[in-house]
Design a protein around this nucleic acid. Structure first.
Lengths: 252, 252
DNA sequence: AAGTGGTCTAGACCACCTG
DNA sequence: AGGTGGTCTAGACCACTTA
């Protein structure tokens, strides 16, 4: 049982920030999710079940779940139950990729893995991922192709500690979204990400990769992805071709 | 009074899409907002007042308002009331601008209006704004400067019909956000926008504007903004400098 | 003190899915 | 038929603002 407000004024001087019951329930659910009590794709107990367990009313549990669903941690399915969100069984192969063909064609991009190796984190990578310089990281390089033409070149850094046995074989075998593999094999679920976008000129290497002239403007997309507890677990530097494609965004 | 479901099965074969009461209430509120019954920044009636008016319970009105607040059409303020959202009295000068200084400095950008004229819509502009080619449009050109250095060059098209008396004088006099002026003077409130982002090389004109070499990569941001009823009312083509600044985005 | 949004409850019933 | 999420109600009480 969770007490809502009665015990608040016990705190010292500071207001101690009132926290409604449903938010405390949300906290408990988040803790269980983070602990892996329910795996991605699984059902969680019904609202009434949880209400009984926490000794609150269904409506209160409901409001907690509402917020978790809004944050894409849970997915509700009427008549079936509430499920832990997953990158698998999602209709989109590239959940976070905002690149779209100018033609609007819904063609799926093909992956081509160029490299998968272990390395030591440089200063920048370490700082972004919350590691120490020199810590072990996994580095991936890969292309995404629209038909025959490469449109995305990604360089990906992952903390070595979280991705111990990641190899190019595992990646090559896997069909679904890469983030689904991360969930299933390494227990790391990506929840949200921040991107920094710039325009820059293709250097010799990237020009060759894309088959364009050096100096051609490319979109540079730096993505930092977070898992539970706002912990950064992936740094990605992408180069996008934007002569035939564009990055779409929605503002509100 | 609105009836929820009893009359559903009267429809022909097709399921006729069940619409809960609160969503119908939401529709009524949206209609009133669109009609300008309450102006941006004003309070709307209290939840109990609306509940009585619509002959439903407070909770049902509440849920309708919840959704409108989530869509940024309304703003709740505990203890005070629910208000029509506005671009004025918003702490941010540039509500939709995602450009940030790499240094993270929160310095406000300065505006410099370069041009404000009437013209005829070309094919592209007309299509984007839902006009006919040759229809009257207002065209603005302006710079945003971080200190002395220009970082954004915007070219803005507005339907002439909606912005009859917009002039450079009106714009020059106005202190707050441009979208706030649009609301107050023209009754056009921007609700959401879509952006298409590309990297491209500076041509001679833009190179001169920014004081960079021709061919320098710039970020191209095409923004289409919508008002009530998904009606497009602003097309904007922006060029952003991204050597000292970047476009930030959040994915979830 | 009065008014507004915010929380919580208990119970009824509806819509949807699965066996 | 039975279970799950989804809606709606009526009423009580809390938190916050304004007067």
């Amino acid at each position: 049982m969770v007490h809502s407000s009665s015990s608040r004024s016990a705190a010292a001087g500071s207001a101690a920030a009132f926290s409604p019951l449903y938010r405390q329930i949300k906290g408990l659910l988040t803790r269980d999710l983070q602990a892996g009590l329910w795996k991605p794709g699984e059902v969680i107990p019904s609202e009434f079940e949880l209400a009984a367990r926490f000794k609150v009313s269904q409506g209160t549990v409901r409001k907690a779940i509402d917020e978790l669903a809004a944050e894409n941690l849970l997915v509700r399915r009427q008549g079936r139950g509430t499920f832990v969100a997953t990158h698998a069984e999602q209709n989109t192969q590239y959940r976070f990729l905002r690149l779209t063909s100018d033609a609007g064609g819904r063609r799926e991009l093909q992956r081509r893995l160029l490299e998968c190796k272990r390395a030591r984190a440089g200063v920048d990578v370490a700082r972004a991922l919350g590691l120490k310089t020199g810590d072990s990281v996994v580095v991936l390089r890969r292309l995404l192709l629209d038909g025959e033409t490469p449109v995305v070149f990604d360089e990906i850094w992952l903390p070595g500690r979280d991705f111990k046995n990641l190899s190019s074989e595992r990646l090559a075998l896997y069909r679904g979204p890469m983030y689904a593999l991360f969930e299933a094999e390494f227990g790391v679920r990506m929840i949200r990400a921040e991107e920094k976008i710039r325009a820059l000129a293709a250097d010799a290497d990237s020009a060759q990769l894309f088959g364009v002239a050096p100096g051609t403007p490319l979109l540079s997309v730096e993505r930092l992805s977070f898992t539970y507890g706002e912990r950064p677990v992936e740094l990605r530097r992408g180069l996008y071709r934007t002569d035939t494609h564009h990055y779409r965004n929605e503002l509100s």
